[in-house]
Nucleic acid binder design. Structure first.
Lengths: 262, 262
DNA sequence: CAGGCATACTCGTATAGACGAGTGGGCAAG
DNA sequence: CTTGCCCACTCGTCTATACGAGTATGCCTG
Protein backbone atom coordinates (compact mmCIF):
# COMPACT_ATOMS: atom_id res chain seq x y z
CA UNK A 1 0.00 0.00 0.00
CA UNK A 2 1.49 3.34 -1.07
CA UNK A 3 1.96 5.70 1.81
CA UNK A 4 0.18 9.03 1.77
CA UNK A 5 2.17 12.01 0.44
CA UNK A 6 3.05 14.08 3.48
CA UNK A 7 1.60 17.56 3.55
CA UNK A 8 -1.49 16.56 1.64
CA UNK A 9 -3.50 16.21 4.82
CA UNK A 10 -2.75 17.61 8.26
CA UNK A 11 -2.70 16.03 11.68
CA UNK A 12 -5.39 15.61 14.26
CA UNK A 13 -5.77 17.97 17.19
CA UNK A 14 -6.14 15.74 20.24
CA UNK A 15 -7.04 18.74 22.42
CA UNK A 16 -9.95 19.71 20.20
CA UNK A 17 -13.52 19.12 21.29
CA UNK A 18 -14.33 18.21 17.72
CA UNK A 19 -14.73 14.48 17.16
CA UNK A 20 -11.87 12.79 15.35
CA UNK A 21 -14.01 11.65 12.42
CA UNK A 22 -15.27 15.21 11.99
CA UNK A 23 -11.72 16.55 11.99
CA UNK A 24 -10.80 14.06 9.28
CA UNK A 25 -13.89 14.98 7.28
CA UNK A 26 -12.99 18.67 7.70
CA UNK A 27 -9.51 18.11 6.35
CA UNK A 28 -10.72 16.10 3.39
CA UNK A 29 -13.41 18.67 2.64
CA UNK A 30 -10.93 21.49 2.74
CA UNK A 31 -8.53 19.61 0.51
CA UNK A 32 -11.33 19.09 -2.00
CA UNK A 33 -12.42 22.73 -1.80
CA UNK A 34 -8.87 23.87 -2.36
CA UNK A 35 -8.61 21.68 -5.41
CA UNK A 36 -6.00 19.33 -4.00
CA UNK A 37 -8.33 16.61 -5.14
CA UNK A 38 -10.08 17.34 -8.39
CA UNK A 39 -13.41 16.23 -9.74
CA UNK A 40 -13.47 12.51 -10.34
CA UNK A 41 -10.14 12.04 -8.62
CA UNK A 42 -9.65 9.23 -6.12
CA UNK A 43 -9.27 10.10 -2.47
CA UNK A 44 -6.80 8.18 -0.28
CA UNK A 45 -8.11 4.70 0.50
CA UNK A 46 -9.54 3.87 3.89
CA UNK A 47 -6.41 1.89 4.73
CA UNK A 48 -4.15 4.80 3.84
CA UNK A 49 -6.11 7.17 6.05
CA UNK A 50 -6.11 4.62 8.87
CA UNK A 51 -2.32 4.64 8.64
CA UNK A 52 -2.00 8.38 8.25
CA UNK A 53 -4.18 9.34 11.19
CA UNK A 54 -3.62 6.29 13.36
CA UNK A 55 -7.33 5.67 13.85
CA UNK A 56 -9.54 2.66 13.28
CA UNK A 57 -11.17 1.96 9.97
CA UNK A 58 -14.70 2.67 11.19
CA UNK A 59 -13.61 6.18 12.14
CA UNK A 60 -12.35 6.81 8.64
CA UNK A 61 -15.54 5.37 7.15
CA UNK A 62 -17.51 7.65 9.42
CA UNK A 63 -15.68 10.62 7.93
CA UNK A 64 -16.44 9.45 4.41
CA UNK A 65 -20.09 9.05 5.25
CA UNK A 66 -20.25 12.69 6.30
CA UNK A 67 -18.80 13.81 2.99
CA UNK A 68 -21.15 11.49 1.15
CA UNK A 69 -24.11 13.04 2.93
CA UNK A 70 -22.88 16.43 1.76
CA UNK A 71 -22.78 15.17 -1.79
CA UNK A 72 -19.05 15.84 -2.05
CA UNK A 73 -17.79 12.31 -2.68
CA UNK A 74 -19.08 8.91 -3.70
CA UNK A 75 -17.67 5.44 -3.06
CA UNK A 76 -17.25 2.74 -5.68
CA UNK A 77 -17.03 -0.79 -4.40
CA UNK A 78 -13.64 -2.31 -5.19
CA UNK A 79 -12.25 0.91 -6.61
CA UNK A 80 -12.14 3.70 -4.07
CA UNK A 81 -13.77 6.92 -2.95
CA UNK A 82 -13.92 9.68 -5.52
CA UNK A 83 -14.67 13.38 -5.63
CA UNK A 84 -18.11 13.56 -7.14
CA UNK A 85 -17.97 15.30 -10.49
CA UNK A 86 -20.52 18.03 -11.02
CA UNK A 87 -22.60 17.04 -14.02
CA UNK A 88 -23.48 19.61 -16.63
CA UNK A 89 -26.64 21.36 -15.55
CA UNK A 90 -29.71 21.75 -17.64
CA UNK A 91 -31.09 25.24 -17.50
CA UNK A 92 -34.86 25.45 -17.53
CA UNK A 93 -36.06 28.88 -18.58
CA UNK A 94 -39.48 30.11 -17.61
CA UNK A 95 -40.40 30.66 -21.27
CA UNK A 96 -39.72 27.04 -22.15
CA UNK A 97 -43.40 26.46 -22.87
CA UNK A 98 -43.87 29.53 -25.01
CA UNK A 99 -45.81 28.89 -28.21
CA UNK A 100 -42.85 29.76 -30.38
CA UNK A 101 -40.98 26.77 -28.95
CA UNK A 102 -43.86 24.50 -29.86
CA UNK A 103 -43.51 24.67 -33.61
CA UNK A 104 -40.89 22.03 -34.22
CA UNK A 105 -41.60 18.34 -34.55
CA UNK A 106 -39.45 17.22 -31.67
CA UNK A 107 -40.07 17.70 -27.99
CA UNK A 108 -38.51 20.63 -26.18
CA UNK A 109 -36.27 18.27 -24.26
CA UNK A 110 -34.83 16.63 -27.37
CA UNK A 111 -34.30 19.89 -29.23
CA UNK A 112 -32.61 21.59 -26.34
CA UNK A 113 -30.34 18.65 -25.49
CA UNK A 114 -29.28 18.26 -29.12
CA UNK A 115 -28.40 21.93 -29.21
CA UNK A 116 -26.29 21.49 -26.07
CA UNK A 117 -24.44 18.58 -27.68
CA UNK A 118 -25.84 15.95 -25.34
CA UNK A 119 -27.49 12.70 -26.22
CA UNK A 120 -31.11 12.82 -25.01
CA UNK A 121 -33.46 9.90 -24.45
CA UNK A 122 -37.00 9.50 -23.20
CA UNK A 123 -38.16 6.18 -21.79
CA UNK A 124 -40.49 4.53 -19.27
CA UNK A 125 -43.37 5.68 -21.35
CA UNK A 126 -46.64 4.80 -19.74
CA UNK A 127 -50.00 6.21 -20.66
CA UNK A 128 -53.04 5.04 -18.76
CA UNK A 129 -56.25 6.10 -17.15
CA UNK A 130 -56.27 5.97 -13.38
CA UNK A 131 -57.84 7.32 -10.24
CA UNK A 132 -56.71 10.83 -9.43
CA UNK A 133 -54.81 11.32 -6.19
CA UNK A 134 -56.32 13.72 -3.69
CA UNK A 135 -53.79 16.38 -4.61
CA UNK A 136 -54.20 16.05 -8.36
CA UNK A 137 -57.96 15.99 -8.04
CA UNK A 138 -57.92 19.23 -6.08
CA UNK A 139 -55.67 20.95 -8.56
CA UNK A 140 -57.74 19.84 -11.56
CA UNK A 141 -61.02 20.85 -9.94
CA UNK A 142 -62.42 17.70 -8.36
CA UNK A 143 -62.02 15.18 -11.11
CA UNK A 144 -62.23 11.50 -10.13
CA UNK A 145 -60.24 9.83 -12.87
CA UNK A 146 -57.45 11.16 -15.06
CA UNK A 147 -55.22 10.27 -17.96
CA UNK A 148 -51.67 9.86 -16.64
CA UNK A 149 -48.66 10.17 -18.93
CA UNK A 150 -45.38 9.03 -17.32
CA UNK A 151 -41.95 9.38 -18.83
CA UNK A 152 -38.33 9.51 -17.76
CA UNK A 153 -35.75 11.78 -19.36
CA UNK A 154 -32.09 10.86 -19.76
CA UNK A 155 -29.06 12.87 -20.82
CA UNK A 156 -26.09 10.92 -22.13
CA UNK A 157 -27.51 7.80 -20.55
CA UNK A 158 -28.04 9.35 -17.15
CA UNK A 159 -31.62 9.72 -15.88
CA UNK A 160 -32.22 13.31 -14.83
CA UNK A 161 -35.97 13.74 -14.57
CA UNK A 162 -39.15 11.77 -14.05
CA UNK A 163 -42.43 13.42 -14.95
CA UNK A 164 -46.12 12.56 -14.89
CA UNK A 165 -48.79 14.61 -16.61
CA UNK A 166 -52.37 14.31 -15.43
CA UNK A 167 -55.28 15.41 -17.63
CA UNK A 168 -59.05 15.25 -17.09
CA UNK A 169 -60.58 12.39 -19.09
CA UNK A 170 -63.17 14.62 -20.78
CA UNK A 171 -60.30 16.52 -22.36
CA UNK A 172 -57.83 13.78 -23.17
CA UNK A 173 -59.75 10.56 -23.85
CA UNK A 174 -59.80 9.52 -27.46
CA UNK A 175 -57.43 12.30 -28.55
CA UNK A 176 -53.77 12.15 -29.64
CA UNK A 177 -52.98 13.12 -26.04
CA UNK A 178 -53.89 9.57 -25.06
CA UNK A 179 -51.36 8.17 -27.53
CA UNK A 180 -47.82 7.31 -26.45
CA UNK A 181 -46.51 9.87 -28.90
CA UNK A 182 -48.84 12.86 -29.00
CA UNK A 183 -47.11 14.36 -32.01
CA UNK A 184 -45.17 17.55 -32.79
CA UNK A 185 -45.18 20.21 -30.10
CA UNK A 186 -46.32 17.77 -27.42
CA UNK A 187 -49.55 17.76 -25.49
CA UNK A 188 -49.69 21.54 -25.15
CA UNK A 189 -49.92 21.85 -28.92
CA UNK A 190 -52.66 19.19 -28.96
CA UNK A 191 -54.56 20.93 -26.17
CA UNK A 192 -54.65 24.16 -28.14
CA UNK A 193 -55.75 22.35 -31.29
CA UNK A 194 -58.58 20.88 -29.26
CA UNK A 195 -59.74 24.36 -28.35
CA UNK A 196 -58.20 24.60 -24.90
CA UNK A 197 -56.20 27.77 -25.38
CA UNK A 198 -53.55 28.02 -22.74
CA UNK A 199 -53.52 31.16 -20.67
CA UNK A 200 -51.03 30.68 -17.87
CA UNK A 201 -49.02 28.15 -15.89
CA UNK A 202 -48.52 27.92 -12.18
CA UNK A 203 -45.40 26.19 -10.90
CA UNK A 204 -44.75 25.07 -7.34
CA UNK A 205 -41.20 24.19 -6.38
CA UNK A 206 -39.95 22.19 -3.45
CA UNK A 207 -36.62 20.54 -2.67
CA UNK A 208 -36.14 17.49 -0.49
CA UNK A 209 -34.19 14.26 -0.20
CA UNK A 210 -35.35 11.54 -2.57
CA UNK A 211 -37.39 8.50 -1.59
CA UNK A 212 -35.74 5.11 -2.18
CA UNK A 213 -37.89 4.70 -5.29
CA UNK A 214 -36.64 8.01 -6.64
CA UNK A 215 -33.05 7.05 -5.89
CA UNK A 216 -33.59 3.97 -8.00
CA UNK A 217 -35.43 5.62 -10.88
CA UNK A 218 -33.01 8.51 -11.18
CA UNK A 219 -29.92 6.49 -10.12
CA UNK A 220 -29.12 9.19 -7.62
CA UNK A 221 -25.88 9.28 -5.67
CA UNK A 222 -26.24 9.82 -1.95
CA UNK A 223 -26.21 13.44 -0.98
CA UNK A 224 -28.13 14.55 -4.05
CA UNK A 225 -31.53 16.13 -3.35
CA UNK A 226 -34.40 16.31 -5.78
CA UNK A 227 -36.32 19.30 -7.04
CA UNK A 228 -40.03 18.60 -7.02
CA UNK A 229 -41.93 20.78 -9.44
CA UNK A 230 -45.71 20.75 -9.85
CA UNK A 231 -47.02 22.69 -12.82
CA UNK A 232 -50.67 23.41 -13.43
CA UNK A 233 -51.76 24.66 -16.86
CA UNK A 234 -54.85 26.86 -17.09
CA UNK A 235 -56.83 27.67 -20.21
CA UNK A 236 -58.27 31.06 -21.07
CA UNK A 237 -61.47 30.17 -19.24
CA UNK A 238 -59.51 29.64 -16.04
CA UNK A 239 -59.91 25.89 -16.04
CA UNK A 240 -57.00 23.69 -15.00
CA UNK A 241 -56.40 21.42 -17.99
CA UNK A 242 -53.20 19.68 -16.94
CA UNK A 243 -51.11 18.99 -13.85
CA UNK A 244 -47.51 17.93 -14.42
CA UNK A 245 -45.62 16.43 -11.51
CA UNK A 246 -41.86 16.43 -12.09
CA UNK A 247 -39.03 15.10 -9.95
CA UNK A 248 -35.56 16.24 -11.05
CA UNK A 249 -32.07 15.29 -9.93
CA UNK A 250 -31.09 18.54 -8.26
CA UNK A 251 -27.47 18.35 -9.39
CA UNK A 252 -28.55 18.41 -13.02
CA UNK A 253 -30.80 21.46 -13.04
CA UNK A 254 -30.98 25.19 -12.65
CA UNK A 255 -34.43 26.71 -12.92
CA UNK A 256 -34.63 30.22 -14.23
CA UNK A 257 -37.62 32.55 -14.04
CA UNK A 258 -38.26 35.96 -15.50
CA UNK A 259 -40.62 38.08 -13.43
CA UNK A 260 -42.08 41.47 -14.28
CA UNK A 261 -41.64 44.06 -11.54
CA UNK A 262 -45.22 45.27 -11.81
CA UNK B 1 -35.81 -1.50 29.34
CA UNK B 2 -39.35 -1.97 28.02
CA UNK B 3 -39.59 -4.65 25.37
CA UNK B 4 -40.84 -3.72 21.92
CA UNK B 5 -44.57 -4.25 21.26
CA UNK B 6 -44.76 -7.29 19.00
CA UNK B 7 -46.20 -6.69 15.57
CA UNK B 8 -44.93 -3.13 15.40
CA UNK B 9 -41.91 -4.19 13.38
CA UNK B 10 -41.37 -7.38 11.41
CA UNK B 11 -38.52 -9.84 11.31
CA UNK B 12 -35.41 -9.99 9.20
CA UNK B 13 -35.16 -12.15 6.11
CA UNK B 14 -31.85 -14.01 6.44
CA UNK B 15 -32.16 -15.31 2.88
CA UNK B 16 -32.43 -11.81 1.44
CA UNK B 17 -29.56 -10.24 -0.43
CA UNK B 18 -30.46 -6.96 1.17
CA UNK B 19 -28.12 -5.97 3.97
CA UNK B 20 -29.51 -6.30 7.48
CA UNK B 21 -29.21 -2.62 8.28
CA UNK B 22 -31.10 -1.80 5.09
CA UNK B 23 -33.86 -4.22 5.99
CA UNK B 24 -34.20 -2.58 9.38
CA UNK B 25 -34.25 0.87 7.79
CA UNK B 26 -36.91 -0.35 5.34
CA UNK B 27 -39.12 -1.57 8.14
CA UNK B 28 -38.75 1.63 10.13
CA UNK B 29 -39.40 3.73 7.03
CA UNK B 30 -42.51 1.80 6.21
CA UNK B 31 -43.77 2.05 9.77
CA UNK B 32 -43.28 5.82 9.62
CA UNK B 33 -44.97 6.08 6.22
CA UNK B 34 -47.93 4.07 7.48
CA UNK B 35 -48.27 6.39 10.40
CA UNK B 36 -47.37 3.81 13.02
CA UNK B 37 -44.97 6.43 14.27
CA UNK B 38 -46.27 9.96 14.03
CA UNK B 39 -44.47 13.24 13.58
CA UNK B 40 -42.34 14.05 16.57
CA UNK B 41 -42.89 10.61 18.07
CA UNK B 42 -39.97 8.68 19.49
CA UNK B 43 -38.78 5.58 17.67
CA UNK B 44 -37.67 2.50 19.61
CA UNK B 45 -34.28 3.07 21.21
CA UNK B 46 -31.15 1.52 19.79
CA UNK B 47 -31.06 -0.98 22.65
CA UNK B 48 -34.66 -2.05 22.00
CA UNK B 49 -33.95 -2.63 18.32
CA UNK B 50 -30.78 -4.55 19.18
CA UNK B 51 -32.94 -6.84 21.29
CA UNK B 52 -35.77 -7.09 18.78
CA UNK B 53 -33.64 -7.94 15.77
CA UNK B 54 -30.78 -9.70 17.54
CA UNK B 55 -28.13 -7.58 15.85
CA UNK B 56 -25.32 -5.44 17.15
CA UNK B 57 -25.76 -1.84 18.03
CA UNK B 58 -23.68 -0.51 15.14
CA UNK B 59 -26.04 -2.23 12.75
CA UNK B 60 -29.01 -0.45 14.26
CA UNK B 61 -27.17 2.85 14.21
CA UNK B 62 -26.37 2.25 10.55
CA UNK B 63 -30.10 1.91 9.88
CA UNK B 64 -30.82 5.15 11.68
CA UNK B 65 -28.15 6.94 9.70
CA UNK B 66 -29.90 5.94 6.47
CA UNK B 67 -33.17 7.40 7.67
CA UNK B 68 -31.38 10.51 8.86
CA UNK B 69 -29.89 10.97 5.42
CA UNK B 70 -33.37 10.77 3.97
CA UNK B 71 -34.50 13.48 6.33
CA UNK B 72 -37.08 11.19 7.93
CA UNK B 73 -35.78 11.14 11.50
CA UNK B 74 -33.42 13.04 13.73
CA UNK B 75 -31.55 11.93 16.85
CA UNK B 76 -31.42 13.86 20.09
CA UNK B 77 -28.56 13.08 22.39
CA UNK B 78 -29.79 11.61 25.64
CA UNK B 79 -33.41 11.50 24.50
CA UNK B 80 -33.90 9.24 21.52
CA UNK B 81 -34.55 9.18 17.80
CA UNK B 82 -37.67 10.97 16.63
CA UNK B 83 -39.75 11.20 13.49
CA UNK B 84 -38.83 14.58 12.08
CA UNK B 85 -41.85 16.89 12.15
CA UNK B 86 -42.54 18.74 8.94
CA UNK B 87 -42.40 22.42 9.75
CA UNK B 88 -45.00 24.79 8.36
CA UNK B 89 -43.85 25.92 4.95
CA UNK B 90 -43.58 29.48 3.82
CA UNK B 91 -45.04 29.99 0.40
CA UNK B 92 -43.19 32.48 -1.74
CA UNK B 93 -45.32 33.78 -4.57
CA UNK B 94 -43.76 35.18 -7.69
CA UNK B 95 -45.56 38.51 -7.19
CA UNK B 96 -44.03 38.99 -3.75
CA UNK B 97 -42.05 41.98 -5.01
CA UNK B 98 -44.93 43.67 -6.76
CA UNK B 99 -45.17 47.39 -6.08
CA UNK B 100 -48.49 47.05 -4.33
CA UNK B 101 -46.79 44.99 -1.62
CA UNK B 102 -44.21 47.72 -1.13
CA UNK B 103 -46.49 50.34 0.35
CA UNK B 104 -46.54 49.30 3.97
CA UNK B 105 -43.93 50.26 6.53
CA UNK B 106 -42.83 46.77 7.41
CA UNK B 107 -40.85 44.35 5.30
CA UNK B 108 -42.65 41.75 3.24
CA UNK B 109 -41.27 39.01 5.47
CA UNK B 110 -42.65 40.55 8.66
CA UNK B 111 -46.06 41.37 7.21
CA UNK B 112 -46.53 37.95 5.72
CA UNK B 113 -45.40 36.06 8.81
CA UNK B 114 -47.63 38.13 11.06
CA UNK B 115 -50.56 37.34 8.81
CA UNK B 116 -49.73 33.63 9.08
CA UNK B 117 -49.70 33.85 12.85
CA UNK B 118 -45.98 33.22 13.18
CA UNK B 119 -43.43 35.23 15.10
CA UNK B 120 -40.93 36.65 12.62
CA UNK B 121 -37.46 38.01 13.36
CA UNK B 122 -34.62 39.39 11.30
CA UNK B 123 -31.08 39.34 12.63
CA UNK B 124 -27.39 39.09 11.68
CA UNK B 125 -27.72 42.46 10.08
CA UNK B 126 -24.50 43.42 8.37
CA UNK B 127 -24.10 46.20 5.86
CA UNK B 128 -20.69 46.84 4.39
CA UNK B 129 -18.77 47.62 1.27
CA UNK B 130 -16.69 44.78 -0.09
CA UNK B 131 -15.05 43.32 -3.15
CA UNK B 132 -17.52 41.74 -5.53
CA UNK B 133 -17.16 38.00 -6.13
CA UNK B 134 -16.58 36.91 -9.70
CA UNK B 135 -20.18 35.76 -10.01
CA UNK B 136 -21.73 38.89 -8.52
CA UNK B 137 -19.48 41.08 -10.60
CA UNK B 138 -20.58 39.34 -13.78
CA UNK B 139 -24.24 39.63 -12.91
CA UNK B 140 -23.99 43.32 -12.02
CA UNK B 141 -22.02 44.13 -15.15
CA UNK B 142 -18.35 44.11 -14.14
CA UNK B 143 -18.40 46.12 -10.97
CA UNK B 144 -15.37 45.83 -8.68
CA UNK B 145 -16.81 46.70 -5.32
CA UNK B 146 -20.34 46.45 -3.99
CA UNK B 147 -22.50 47.23 -1.02
CA UNK B 148 -23.44 43.96 0.67
CA UNK B 149 -26.49 43.70 2.93
CA UNK B 150 -26.65 40.46 4.91
CA UNK B 151 -29.54 39.32 7.06
CA UNK B 152 -31.01 36.15 8.49
CA UNK B 153 -34.72 35.50 8.76
CA UNK B 154 -36.32 33.49 11.55
CA UNK B 155 -39.82 32.17 12.06
CA UNK B 156 -40.86 31.35 15.62
CA UNK B 157 -37.22 31.31 16.61
CA UNK B 158 -36.12 28.99 13.85
CA UNK B 159 -33.75 30.32 11.18
CA UNK B 160 -35.21 29.66 7.75
CA UNK B 161 -33.34 31.86 5.33
CA UNK B 162 -30.07 33.70 4.91
CA UNK B 163 -29.84 36.40 2.28
CA UNK B 164 -27.27 38.80 0.93
CA UNK B 165 -28.08 41.69 -1.38
CA UNK B 166 -25.32 43.17 -3.50
CA UNK B 167 -25.64 46.64 -5.02
CA UNK B 168 -23.22 48.68 -7.11
CA UNK B 169 -21.59 51.41 -5.04
CA UNK B 170 -22.56 54.18 -7.43
CA UNK B 171 -26.18 53.39 -6.73
CA UNK B 172 -26.15 52.58 -3.03
CA UNK B 173 -23.38 54.60 -1.38
CA UNK B 174 -24.59 57.44 0.77
CA UNK B 175 -28.26 56.53 0.35
CA UNK B 176 -30.71 54.98 2.82
CA UNK B 177 -29.86 51.66 1.15
CA UNK B 178 -26.52 51.77 2.95
CA UNK B 179 -28.30 52.13 6.31
CA UNK B 180 -29.06 49.07 8.42
CA UNK B 181 -32.74 49.88 8.14
CA UNK B 182 -33.49 51.22 4.68
CA UNK B 183 -37.03 52.28 5.64
CA UNK B 184 -40.56 51.34 4.56
CA UNK B 185 -40.85 49.12 1.51
CA UNK B 186 -37.23 48.02 1.73
CA UNK B 187 -34.44 48.65 -0.72
CA UNK B 188 -36.66 48.19 -3.77
CA UNK B 189 -38.76 51.16 -2.70
CA UNK B 190 -35.55 53.20 -2.14
CA UNK B 191 -34.18 52.18 -5.53
CA UNK B 192 -37.28 53.48 -7.24
CA UNK B 193 -37.19 56.73 -5.26
CA UNK B 194 -33.61 57.15 -6.44
CA UNK B 195 -34.81 56.92 -10.02
CA UNK B 196 -33.95 53.32 -10.73
CA UNK B 197 -37.35 52.13 -11.86
CA UNK B 198 -37.53 48.39 -11.64
CA UNK B 199 -38.52 46.57 -14.78
CA UNK B 200 -38.04 42.87 -14.17
CA UNK B 201 -36.43 40.26 -11.95
CA UNK B 202 -34.57 37.16 -12.95
CA UNK B 203 -34.45 34.30 -10.47
CA UNK B 204 -32.17 31.28 -10.65
CA UNK B 205 -32.99 28.31 -8.47
CA UNK B 206 -30.78 25.43 -7.42
CA UNK B 207 -31.09 22.79 -4.72
CA UNK B 208 -28.17 21.09 -3.00
CA UNK B 209 -26.95 19.85 0.34
CA UNK B 210 -25.83 22.62 2.68
CA UNK B 211 -22.23 23.44 3.50
CA UNK B 212 -21.19 23.06 7.16
CA UNK B 213 -21.44 26.84 7.53
CA UNK B 214 -25.01 26.80 6.22
CA UNK B 215 -25.89 23.95 8.56
CA UNK B 216 -24.73 26.13 11.41
CA UNK B 217 -26.37 29.38 10.32
CA UNK B 218 -29.73 27.78 9.52
CA UNK B 219 -29.48 25.15 12.28
CA UNK B 220 -30.34 22.51 9.71
CA UNK B 221 -31.09 18.92 10.63
CA UNK B 222 -29.25 16.31 8.62
CA UNK B 223 -31.12 15.26 5.52
CA UNK B 224 -32.46 18.75 4.84
CA UNK B 225 -31.29 20.32 1.56
CA UNK B 226 -31.17 24.03 0.85
CA UNK B 227 -32.77 25.99 -1.94
CA UNK B 228 -30.30 28.44 -3.40
CA UNK B 229 -32.00 31.36 -5.12
CA UNK B 230 -30.16 34.12 -6.93
CA UNK B 231 -32.30 37.06 -7.96
CA UNK B 232 -31.13 39.86 -10.21
CA UNK B 233 -33.19 43.04 -10.41
CA UNK B 234 -33.08 45.08 -13.63
CA UNK B 235 -34.19 48.65 -14.07
CA UNK B 236 -36.10 49.98 -17.08
CA UNK B 237 -32.82 50.73 -18.83
CA UNK B 238 -31.81 47.09 -18.63
CA UNK B 239 -29.16 47.65 -16.01
CA UNK B 240 -28.75 45.12 -13.19
CA UNK B 241 -29.18 47.17 -10.02
CA UNK B 242 -29.20 44.43 -7.40
CA UNK B 243 -28.23 40.80 -6.96
CA UNK B 244 -29.79 38.97 -4.03
CA UNK B 245 -28.28 35.65 -3.01
CA UNK B 246 -30.60 33.64 -0.78
CA UNK B 247 -30.13 30.28 0.90
CA UNK B 248 -33.33 28.77 2.30
CA UNK B 249 -33.98 25.72 4.45
CA UNK B 250 -35.73 23.55 1.89
CA UNK B 251 -38.15 22.05 4.39
CA UNK B 252 -39.53 25.48 5.19
CA UNK B 253 -40.33 26.73 1.70
CA UNK B 254 -42.48 26.27 -1.35
CA UNK B 255 -41.77 28.61 -4.23
CA UNK B 256 -44.65 29.46 -6.48
CA UNK B 257 -44.45 31.09 -9.91
CA UNK B 258 -47.12 32.36 -12.26
CA UNK B 259 -46.12 32.19 -15.90
CA UNK B 260 -47.98 33.52 -18.91
CA UNK B 261 -48.46 30.94 -21.69
CA UNK B 262 -47.47 33.38 -24.39
C1' DC C 1 -41.67 20.73 50.82
C1' DA C 2 -37.53 22.04 48.07
C1' DG C 3 -33.18 21.11 46.42
C1' DG C 4 -29.64 18.24 44.95
C1' DC C 5 -27.68 14.02 43.83
C1' DA C 6 -27.64 9.22 42.18
C1' DT C 7 -28.95 6.47 38.64
C1' DA C 8 -30.72 4.51 34.56
C1' DC C 9 -31.49 5.31 30.02
C1' DT C 10 -30.43 7.71 25.84
C1' DC C 11 -27.27 8.59 21.82
C1' DG C 12 -22.05 9.82 20.47
C1' DT C 13 -17.47 8.29 19.65
C1' DA C 14 -13.90 5.03 19.00
C1' DT C 15 -11.42 0.49 18.80
C1' DA C 16 -10.29 -4.16 16.92
C1' DG C 17 -11.42 -7.75 14.31
C1' DA C 18 -13.68 -10.73 10.84
C1' DC C 19 -15.48 -12.04 6.50
C1' DG C 20 -17.57 -10.89 1.93
C1' DA C 21 -17.48 -9.03 -2.63
C1' DG C 22 -16.07 -6.08 -6.62
C1' DT C 23 -11.88 -4.68 -9.41
C1' DG C 24 -7.72 -4.97 -11.77
C1' DG C 25 -3.10 -6.42 -12.60
C1' DG C 26 0.29 -9.86 -12.97
C1' DC C 27 1.71 -14.39 -13.59
C1' DA C 28 1.43 -19.00 -15.16
C1' DA C 29 -0.37 -22.40 -18.09
C1' DG C 30 -1.90 -23.60 -22.49
C1' DC D 1 0.45 -14.65 -27.53
C1' DT D 2 -3.86 -15.56 -25.27
C1' DT D 3 -6.49 -17.33 -21.68
C1' DG D 4 -7.55 -17.97 -17.15
C1' DC D 5 -6.52 -17.92 -12.42
C1' DC D 6 -4.70 -15.92 -8.31
C1' DC D 7 -3.84 -12.27 -5.46
C1' DA D 8 -3.70 -7.72 -3.72
C1' DC D 9 -6.34 -3.90 -2.94
C1' DT D 10 -10.65 -1.72 -2.55
C1' DC D 11 -15.13 -0.81 -0.09
C1' DG D 12 -19.40 -3.28 2.27
C1' DT D 13 -21.30 -5.53 6.21
C1' DC D 14 -21.40 -7.06 10.85
C1' DT D 15 -19.96 -8.20 15.66
C1' DA D 16 -18.47 -7.06 20.37
C1' DT D 17 -16.86 -3.91 23.47
C1' DA D 18 -15.73 0.30 25.90
C1' DC D 19 -16.26 4.76 27.58
C1' DG D 20 -18.26 9.51 27.34
C1' DA D 21 -21.96 12.78 27.64
C1' DG D 22 -26.78 14.57 27.68
C1' DT D 23 -31.49 13.83 29.83
C1' DA D 24 -34.97 12.66 32.96
C1' DT D 25 -36.65 10.64 36.99
C1' DG D 26 -37.02 9.52 41.52
C1' DC D 27 -35.20 9.21 45.85
C1' DC D 28 -32.84 11.12 49.64
C1' DT D 29 -31.46 14.80 52.38
C1' DG D 30 -31.86 19.08 54.56
Amino acid sequence: MPTLPSGLLGDLDPTSDRAVFRQIADQLREAIDRGRFREGEKLPSEAELVDHYGVSRMTVRNSFSILQGEGLVHAEHGKGVFVRPRPPVRRLASDRFARRHREQGKSAFIVEADAAGSHPQVDSLEVKEEKASQDVSTRLGSVRRVLARRRRYLLDGRPVEFATSYLPLDIARGTPIAEPNPGPGGIYARLEELGHHLDRFEEEIRARMPSPAEVKTLRLASGVPVIHLIRTAYDTEGRAVEVCDTVMAADAYVLSYQLPAT
